Amino acid sequence: MASSADISVAVVAGEVSGDMLAGRLLAGLRAQLPNARFHGIGGPRMAEQGFVSDLPMDTLTVRGLFEVIPRYREIKRIQNTLRDRLLAERPAVFIGADYPGFNLGLEMQLKAAGIPTVHFVSPQIWAWRGGRIKKIQKAVSHMLVIFPFEEEIYRKAGVPVTYIGHPLAEMIPLQPDQDQARSALGIAVDARVVTVMPGSRMGELKYLAEPFVGAVKLLAARDPGLRFVVPMAGDKQRAYFNELVARAGLSDVDILLVDGQSHSAIGAADAVLVASGTATLEVALFKKPMVIAYKVMAASWHIMRHMGYQPWIGLPNILAREFLVPELLQHAATPQALADAVWQQLTDAPGRLRLVQRFTDMHHSLLRNSAQESAAAVMRIIESPSS
């Protein structure tokens, strides 16, 4: 293998979760390739490892099926430009960090040209769009998976695969300290706290913030002593949420908006109202009762609801293979239904204890040294004579 100074590694992450995952992988790689060039498209976690982003990550961020249509040409142009650069550069490996709609198409073209491709985080072919496995076979030299049940799927399909564990299982302690989290946010230890997580992207807020605010209003009416914590991903999100709070007349309700600090917000909670996505797994690893909600554009929902292969959408329920926690989807995610479900989670003491045990078992099953495991898999590809 050439010296690390002569090696370039290209990576694309299109969302916050992909940036976090790729940041862990690059930390492991940087230890073995101290002088390599890491570049592509990514966010702040990747930048901490010396990654240079050729474009801001948010230029790729789109949510939903129909929401992508107005930006299709722009995103396709970015993909083509990046493809041409990488075909000229010929990096030692290309790593697609999640974001399959963009990355799999790029990987297929790079692999066909002889550039090894790694896809980090399996598309949810076990949940919907199982036909993607055929595209993955053509696009991916090696798949890195973060859930143990995914290994068998790819082995059966003849796709080289490595289970690396889930990085969040390393970042979140097995026994989170609720008192410490509350202290960090200035919340009394004996307070009753509901954390509200309507999503980090404006696309999510557009559909979930209003019913979530409505649920807050109903819960506060049931128990005026409740404290609500809402982590915000940025100034635009904060302004939008504050506007909804003001419109709902909640000036007397104890709502604490915090910048980022999602782990402190979850750790401080007695129950969490959360948008479907990676955040639901974070809540499970913090061993917290939760209610999961999901809403998208009506046209997207009409298609997506016919494409599912299993009855769950929340990661904790998928991993458990049962409805451990409630899921309220699309039209079912009304303020009243959300408030009733959160209240049940707050007041069911035996149920809370059962969830702690189930989520602890889940945590153990996901715990590996993901940076080391993922970096080792990538290094095997870089060092392979065929690559």
Rank of each mutant, 00 (worst) to 15 (best):
R77E: 05
P148K: 02
A113T: 05
E152A: 15
I75P: 06
A113V: 04
P167S: 01
N35Y: 03
V159A: 12
L256V: 12
H166F: 02
G28N: 07
S264P: 00
V62L: 13
T278C: 03
S370Y: 05
L226Q: 04
E383K: 11
G267P: 11
D254I: 04
P231N: 14
R238V: 13
V193G: 09
I164R: 12
D340T: 08
D190E: 15
P385I: 00
G277S: 06
Y207W: 05
V245G: 10
A293N: 04
R132C: 07
R201I: 01
V193A: 08
T347R: 14
G131E: 05
I75F: 06
A332K: 15
A298P: 09
P316E: 12
M57Y: 04
V378S: 07
S384M: 05
V291H: 06
W126G: 01
E15G: 08
V118L: 10
A127R: 05
D270N: 11
Q79E: 13
I125P: 04
M202A: 14
I266S: 01
A10Y: 10
P335Q: 06
A293S: 05
S262H: 07
L366A: 03
T59C: 14
V161N: 03
L257S: 08
H263R: 06
A10G: 02
Q345K: 01
P198F: 00
G40H: 01
D190K: 14
Q330K: 07
P123Y: 00
P224W: 11
M46T: 10
R83C: 14
I125S: 00
L104P: 07
Y154I: 12
F359G: 00
L110R: 10
T117V: 11
A215R: 05
K206T: 08
E48Y: 03
M290K: 03
K156D: 15
M290C: 01
G131Y: 03
I303H: 07
E322V: 00
L55R: 15
V52P: 04
I69W: 14
K135L: 15
D340K: 03
A349P: 08
I164K: 10
V283L: 02
M304V: 11
H119P: 03
F51P: 10
S387L: 10
K135S: 08
M20I: 15
M1N: 06
T59S: 14
Q336S: 09
S122Y: 03
Q124N: 11
G267D: 11
I313M: 13
E327H: 07
P350R: 02
W343N: 13
P100Q: 04
R90Q: 13
V296T: 15
R222K: 10
V118W: 09
G42F: 03
S370Q: 12
D223Q: 11
W312Q: 11
V291L: 04
E170K: 09
E107Q: 13
S3T: 10
L26E: 00
H142N: 12
G96W: 04
A341F: 02
L106E: 13
D84L: 05
A181S: 14
R45K: 10
P70E: 01
R71P: 02
Y99W: 14
S384R: 13
H166Q: 05
D223N: 13
R247P: 10
I292C: 10
A221M: 03
V62M: 11
K295H: 05
A97L: 06
Q344E: 13
G203L: 08
K236A: 15
G14R: 09
P350V: 04
M290T: 01
R222P: 00
